[in-house]
Design a binder for these strands. Structure first.
Length: 803
RNA sequence: GUCGGAGUGGCGAAAUUGGUAGACGCGCAGGAUUUAGGAUCCUGUGGAGUAAUCCUUGCAGGUUCGAUUCCUGUCUCCGACACCA
C-alpha cells in the first residue's frame, strides 16, 4: 500500500467538514473548556499564500489540535483583512476594481488554506471589506465619536506621495523596518540612506504636510496600555517594543518668563534637578535643515532671553535643528553640563556651561513655588485614522454649515462605499469619493439643511482592530441583537428599524468566548495592530460592551521564514509557493517539514532537499502502520534485535516519548517534538509485529502535525472510534519513565574515559559504582599513574576521579 | 549611541538547577537491491592521527573535579528605540 497523499487529504477534508469537526457548538459552552485559538488574519494578496504563511498558520493549527485532544472546545476562525491600501494598491496596478480583485483573491486564499488542512471553522469567517462587516467598523467610529475619542484637527502629518494619502505615525518607519527599498516620490530608488522615513506599504519617503484629519485619542489610554502590559503573557520582545513606543517619561513642565515681555515659554524636562545649571533655551526651527544621522547641530539666536526662575539669570533662546516640534512642549532647557546634546550645541556656539550640583529638592520646590508642574510625556501620538483613498470604510460623519460635524445616525449605517470607476487616489488631499457629488451631497441629519459627507475612508488598522470580537458571533442569527435583549430575528429587525442601539456581536456568546486564549502572529505588528486592538478593546470595555480589558492575554510572536538567506518577498523573487509542495508531497509533509525546520520563533530557511527527507519519513510512517496490521496482543516479536526485554524497553520509550512530545508542544518547541516522534518511529521500525497500542499513540502524537495521515490510519487501519482529532491525548505513566539499564559516565579529571552499563537500581549506589568504575579496563589504565585525590559521584549519571 | 537577543559540524539545528557536545534531519561516502537510473534498505559521517590519543560550542581569560551553560573582557551578526529633552 502506497502512501497516496492526494487521496487521503481530499478525503478527510471532506469528512471533517461534513462532520463539523472544527465548528464548535458556539452557544453551549463551559467557559473553562474553551480555547479561542486565533491566528492573525491575512490580507489576501494577489500572489496568494506563501510558505511563510504556511509556517505561521501551521504553528497555530498545531496548538489548536493539541488543545482539542486535551479536552478543550477549540474555536479557530479565519478571515480576510481585505479592505485597505494593500489590497487597493494591487488593484490599481492591474487596473481593476478592488472589489472584483478581492473576490478573486479571497477565494484563492480560502482554497490554499483549506488545502493546508487547518482546523478552521469555515462557518464563521470575516471579510473586512464586506458591507455587513464594515458597517460595524463605522459603528465603532460612532462609538469613538460619542465618547469624545474621535476628533478632527489640523496637524503636521505624514503623507505618502505614492499612496497619495496620510499615514499614522506607526505606519512610517525606516526602509529596513518596512523591508522595502526606499524610493523618492517619483519612484526612483534611493541608495545609501538608512535614516529615511518611509511608507510601511510602498517604501516611498514620506512628506510632512499640514492637513485637517480625523484622529482617535489613543493617548488618553497611554497609561492603561502601558500598565496592561504587566498583566499579559506576551513574547518579551513585543512587550518591550510596545513599551518603548508608548515611551512614557516623567518629568516637569517649567515656565520661563521672557525678558522685557509678558510672554512665557514652557519647557518639558525629565531632569528638573539640573535647573540650576541651565544656560540656554532651545526650540525647534522650521527653517533650519532637518538633522540626519551624525549631522551637526545647527542653531540661530532669536535675540530673546528667558529668565531662570531659580536665580534670575538671563538665558538666550535659540532656534535649533535638534529639538522636535512634536515632542514635549517644543522647548528644551539647555543644560550642557548634564546633557551631551546640549553640550555639543553649547560648545559649537560658545554658550555658557554651568555645572552646579544636582538638586533633588527641586522636584518638590518647583511645584511649591509655582515655577512648574509635574508632567508625564509620551512618545505615543494620537492615531490618525483618515485616509484619502477609496478602498476602505467611509467615515460616517457629515459636515453641516450650521451644525458643524454631525455623526451619521446608527440606523443609517452602513454608509455604503459606492462602486465608482475613478477610484485611483489623486494626491490632492482629498479621497476619490470627493469627486462624487451623489455620495457626498447629503442632508444634515440634525437640521436637514445642506451638508457634505466626509469623503475620507478609515485606516485598514481600524478594520482589524476588532475582528476577533466578531468571529464567534458570525453565522449566529443573534449576531446583531440588542445588548441583553431578546434573540428573535424579528425583534432584532424591528429594533434595528427603530434605530435602537445594537452590537456587532452577540453579548452572551462573547462573554463565553472572549478573551482570545492564544493569539499567534508576527512581531512586526507590535506597535501597529497589536496596540490598536488593545486600545479599541479597552474602549469597548469602558463602554460596558465587553467584559474583558485585554483582548489577548497570551500572544506568541512567531518568526519569519527565510529563503536563500533573505526574508521572502516578491520583489526578491524568493517566494516559495506552498501549492507546488502540497501537490507533490502533500499538506502533511509540508506541515511537518516547516514545523521541523527550526524554532517557531526563529527564522528557518526553506530548502527543497529538506522537504524530500520529510516525505521519506512520512512514507516510512505509513508503511509502519500498514505493515504492522494489528497483532492484537501486547507481545512483541523482535525482528532485528536480540534484546533482552523488548517489551519493557519499548514501554519505557513509549512513555518517554509521550512525556517529551507533550512538554515540547506546550512550549511551542515543535522541532524537537517532531525529532522525538522520529526517534520513536525509528525504534518501532525495529520490530516486525507491534501491539496496536504503540501505533495508536503514534497516530495521536502525529495528529497535530499530520492531521490527514493520522486520521487515515486511525480510522482505516487501526479501526479506532471517531476522529483521532477528538480522541484523548495520550498520557504517560511515571513508573515506566526509567530505563532498565542506564549508562554511567566515568571521567578522569573531567575527561570522558569510559562508560558503564548498569542496572537502574544499582546506578545510585555510590560504593558499588565507584568500585565498578575502578575495575574498568580503560579507567584502570589512567589510575595506575596517579593517586586519586577526589571522587565525584552523581547518582545515576557519572563518576569523576581527580588524580 | 542606548537597550535587548544570538554566535555550536558541509547545512537546518539539539543539549540549562554546570555532568557523555552535536539528538533529529539534510547533505555526503561506502554497501545491498536493480540490466541501468530512480526509489528503498543497511553502515559510516565534527577535525587531526595507522593507533593510543589530542583538538573542538566567535575570541581571550576566570571560577569549578567538570563550562555550550556561570563570571570578566572582547569581536561579529540580528532586532527594538534613536538628537525624546
Amino acid at each position: 500500500m502506497e502512501y497516496n497523499h492526494k487521496k487521503i487529504e481530499a478525503k478527510w477534508q471532506k469528512v471533517w467538514e461534513k462532520e463539523k469537526l472544527y465548528s464548535p457548538d458556539i452557544k453551549n459552552l463551559k467557559k473553562k473548556d474553551k480555547f479561542y485559538n486565533l491566528w492573525m488574519f491575512p490580507y489576501p494578496s494577489a500572489e496568494g499564500l506563501h510558505a511563510g504563511h504556511a509556517f505561521a498558520s501551521t504553528g497555530s493549527d498545531v496548538i489548536g489540535r493539541f488543545m482539542r485532544m486535551n479536552g478543550k472546545t477549540v474555536f479557530q476562525p479565519i478571515g480576510y483583512d481585505s479592505f485597505g491600501i494593500h489590497s487597493e494598491n494591487y488593484a490599481i496596478k492591474i487596473n481593476e476594481n478592488p472589489k472584483e480583485v478581492v473576490k478573486r483573491t479571497t477565494k484563492h486564499y480560502e482554497e490554499q488554506m483549506r488545502s493546508l488542512g487547518h482546523g478552521y471553522d469555515w462557518t464563521r469567517t470575516v471579510t473586512t471589506s464586506s458591507e455587513d462587516y464594515y458597517k460595524w467598523t463605522q459603528w465603532l467610529f460612532l462609538k469613538m465619536w460619542e465618547k469624545g475619542l474621535a476628533y478632527r484637527k489640523t496637524a503636521e502629518v505624514n503623507f505618502c506621495p505614492s499612496c497619495k494619502t496620510v499615514l499614522a505615525d506607526e505606519q512610517v518607519m525606516t526602509p529596513k523596518q518596512a523591508g522595502k527599498e526606499p524610493r523618492s516620490a517619483n519612484g526612483e530608488l534611493i541608495v545609501n540612506n538608512e535614516d529615511l522615513r518611509v511608507c510601511e506599504r510602498c517604501g516611498t519617503v514620506v512628506e510632512r504636510k499640514n492637513l485637517d484629519q480625523w484622529f482617535f485619542k489613543i493617548t488618553d489610554y497611554a497609561d492603561r496600555l502601558l500598565n496592561g502590559l504587566d498583566t499579559i503573557n506576551w513574547s518579551q520582545r513585543v512587550v518591550t517594543a510596545q513599551r518603548e513606543w508608548i515611551g512614557k517619561s516623567e518629568g516637569m513642565k517649567i515656565d520661563f518668563k521672557i525678558k522685557d515681555s509678558d510672554e512665557i515659554i514652557t519647557v518639558f524636562t525629565t531632569r528638573p534637578d539640573t535647573l540650576e545649571s541651565v544656560t540656554f533655551i532651545a526650540t525647534f526651527s522650521d527653517e533650519l535643515e532637518k538633522p540626519e544621522k551624525s549631522k551637526e547641530k545647527l542653531g540661530k539666536f532669536t535675540g530673546k532671553y528667558a529668565i531662570s526662575p531659580v536665580d534670575g539669570r538671563e538665558l538666550p533662546i535659540w532656534e535649533t535643528n535638534y529639538v522636535e516640534k512634536n515632542y514635549g512642549t517644543g522647548f528644551v532647557m539647555g543644560v550642557p553640563a548634564y546633557d551631551e546634546h546640549d553640550m555639543e550645541f553649547a560648545k559649537k556656539y560658545s554658550l555658557d556651561i554651568l555645572s552646579n550640583s544636582l538638586n533633588d529638592k527641586l522636584w518638590d520646590e518647583i511645584p511649591k513655588k509655582k515655577w512648574g508642574v509635574k508632567h508625564t510625556n509620551y512618545h505615543l501620538r494620537d492615531w490618525l485614522v483618515s485616509r484619502q483613498r477609496y478602498w476602505g470604510a467611509p467615515i460616517p460623519m457629515i459636515d453641516c454649515d450650521k451644525c458643524g460635524w454631525v455623526s451619521v445616525p446608527e440606523k443609517d449605517l452602513p454608509v455604503t462605499l459606492p462602486d465608482i470607476k475613478d477610484f485611483k487616489p489623486e494626491g490632492n488631499g482629498r479621497g476619490p469619493l470627493a469627486n462624487h457629488e451623489e455620495f457626498w451631497k447629503v442632508k444634515c441629519p440634525n437640521c436637514n439643511g445642506e451638508a457634505r459627507r466626509e469623503t475620507d475612508v478609515m485606516d485598514t488598522f481600524v478594520d482589524s482592530s476588532w475582528y476577533f470580537l466578531r468571529y464567534p458571533s458570525v453565522g449566529s442569527d443573534t449576531s446583531s441583537t440588542l445588548l441583553g435583549g431578546p434573540r428573535s430575528k424579528n425583534a432584532s429587525a424591528s429594533r434595528e428599524a427603530a434605530g435602537i442601539s445594537r452590537l456587532p456581536w452577540d453579548n452572551d456568546i462573547n462573554k463565553n468566548w472572549l478573551p482570545v486564549d492564544l493569539y499567534f502572529g508576527g512581531a512586526e505588528h507590535a506597535v501597529l495592530h497589536l496596540m490598536y486592538a488593545r486600545f479599541v478593546n479597552m474602549v469597548m470595555y469602558d463602554l460596558g460592551l465587553i467584559d474583558h480589558e485585554e483582548p489577548f492575554p497570551k500572544f506568541f510572536a512567531h518568526g519569519l521564514m527565510i529563503k536563500d538567506g533573505a526574508k521572502m518577498s516578491k520583489s526578491r523573487g524568493n517566494v516559495v509557493n506552498p501549492d507546488i509542495y502540497i501537490e507533490k508531497y502533500g499538506a502533511d509533509t509540508l506541515r511537518l517539514y516547516v514545523m521541523f525546520l527550526g524554532q517557531m520563533d526563529g527564522y528557518p530557511d526553506f530548502r527543497d532537499s529538506g522537504i524530500e527527507g520529510m516525505s521519506r519519513f512520512l512514507k516510512r510512517v505509513y508503511k509502519l502502520f500498514t505493515q504492522n496490521s494489528i497483532s492484537g496482543s501486547s507481545l512483541l516479536r523482535v525482528a532485528s534485535q536480540t534484546s533482552r526485554s523488548a517489551s519493557a524497553d519499548l514501554r519505557f520509550i513509549l512513555n518517554k516519548t509521550i512525556k517529551g512530545v507533550t512538554e515540547d508542544i506546550k512550549l511551542f518547541k515543535y522541532n524537537t517534538a517532531i525529532a522525538k516522534i522520529m526517534e520513536f518511529v525509528n525504534e518501532l521500525a525495529k520490530y516486525e509485529v507491534l501491539s496496536t497500542k504503540y501505533l495508536v499513540v503514534l497516530a495521536q502524537l502525529l495528529a497535530p502535525f499530520t492531521p490527514h495521515l493520522s486520521e487515515e490510519v486511525w480510522r482505516e487501519i487501526l479501526k479506532q472510534k471517531g476522529s483521532v482529532h477528538t480522541s484523548t491525548w495520550p498520557t504517560y505513566d511515571e513508573k515506566y519513565l526509567h530505563a532498565e539499564q542506564v549508562e554511567i559516565v566515568v571521567q578522569i579529571n573531567g575527561k570522558l574515559r569510559s562508560q558503564l552499563i548498569v542496572k537502574n537500581e544499582e546506578s545510585k549506589n555510590k560504593n558499588k559504582i565507584i568500585q565498578l568504575a575502578k575495575q574498568d579496563e580503560k579507567v584502570a589504565k589512567w589510575l595506575v599513574s596517579g593517586r586519586i585525590k577526589k571522587e565525584v559521584f552523581i547518582p545515576g549519571r557519572l563518576v569523576n576521579f581527580v588524580v
